[in-house]
């Protein structure tokens, strides 16, 4: 329903008209590039496992930032800041999933 559009000030809707969505395109290109770099590094065996691991993690964090700034317009919008709560929760969950998976999947390693 249209109520949504009315309530979100950052969302200009149809009036944007002919403007080319540059932010989205730039964001899209950067996110594709980040993915391709990660793929290339793995396929080319560019570095040892530890280095690869850290590099891909850094790329992943950059990817999150690209998504937040280029597509999710984190700086725009008024009203209650639900997105801050959700983002905090999201970061807690992401941390849990990544750190938890590493912790779990290195099983057996500590005893050898």
């Amino acid at each position: 329903m249209s109520m949504m559009e009315e309530k979100v000030p950052g969302h200009t809707g149809r009036s944007e008209g002919g403007n080319w969505p540059w932010m989205h395109i730039i964001g899209f290109v950067i996110s594709i590039l980040l993915t391709l770099i990660a793929l290339r590094l793995v396929l080319a065996h560019a570095m040892g496992p530890a280095g690869l691991f850290v590099t891909i993690m850094v790329l992943a964090v950059l990817q999150i930032l690209v998504q937040l700034f280029f597509f999710m317009h984190i700086l725009e919008g008024g009203g209650p800041r639900w997105h801050l709560w959700m983002l905090t929760l999201g970061f807690i969950f992401v941390f849990t999933i990544i750190a938890g998976s590493i912790w779990i999947m290195t099983f057996g390693a500590e005893s050898y």
Partner: peptide, 13 residues
Amino acid sequence: FTWLHHFFTMGAG
């Protein structure tokens, strides 16, 4: 924070 209880028997230590 509970998902591993589905595979305790994996033996993650």
